[in-house]
Design a protein around this nucleic acid. Sequence first.
DNA 1: CAAAATTAGTTTGTATACAAGATAATATAG
DNA 2: CTATATTATCTTGTATACAAACTAATTTTG
Lengths: 137, 137
Amino acid sequence: MSEHEECFVFLLGKAYQKAHGLLKKKLLPFGLTPVQHLILAVLRDEEALSSAEISERTVMDSATLSGVLDRMAEAGLVKKEENPEDRRSLRVSITARARKMMDDLAEQRKAVNEELTSVLSLEEKLLFKRMLKDIKG
Amino acid sequence: MSEHEECFVFLLGKAYQKAHGLLKKKLLPFGLTPVQHLILAVLRDEEALSSAEISERTVMDSATLSGVLDRMAEAGLVKKEENPEDRRSLRVSITARARKMMDDLAEQRKAVNEELTSVLSLEEKLLFKRMLKDIKG
DNA sequence: CAAAATTAGTTTGTATACAAGATAATATAG
DNA sequence: CTATATTATCTTGTATACAAACTAATTTTG
């Protein structure tokens, strides 16, 4: 019954692990990780984005992104092209194959969110979301 | 303004990243990571714990723990001994050196928790904590 | 008691996360 | 226009996280 169980860092970590684990399981049949699914979500409605733009929208580090995008390109989920306007940057786009999965993915994501917060009332869900947004800043 | 920003998995992840990053910074001068700090916290009031016991209390995977405990032993933060009663299991204990830091660490942890939740009212902090506990299950 | 099942930890392989340094390309200053 | 600064991405090194296979030790069974 140590005090660490009252620590927000610990509690957030464990709640996140639970959430991440649930989503991971649901995405397994699609051959996607939660992070990869997130990247597809931001690419879905775009022609193409640079690594920096994906980094900004997903709040992921560019170093992390580098490896993830490689694996996703390898798996045929995204296409990585050179930007002719600025050859330092990339044009990353979602492939047709990945795009076909998006509706099913949205369903899985929704299911996870519901399962995860099933203990909360509708009102609490909204409050919880607001507080998370406040905290992440 | 994609829908992923309404996803609890994403929001929890980012809130956790924020919390983890804050604590990480505060622990840097002590040469500790947040996870190592957590392990010291559960060892603090114990003679010694096995890997499985630490795993249970910190909710960490035994595979992850194996490496972390090695690095901590290497750094002189814990002592790993063989349990003579059952030679499969370990007796991990906190070192005197690490124990000396514990009060300072508790202060840092408290500071992080306050900084992290400074946008919340006292009432909201309690509510938030309760909801996190509900969700992690 | 010896074979089989179980248990405690470790190892291996994959996927983030992030700091710091390296690279290549572009923009800017003089 | 060239030396310098900046920018976009990648690479490297360290630290989790976790599944799965592996080892060693103990317990259970027949």
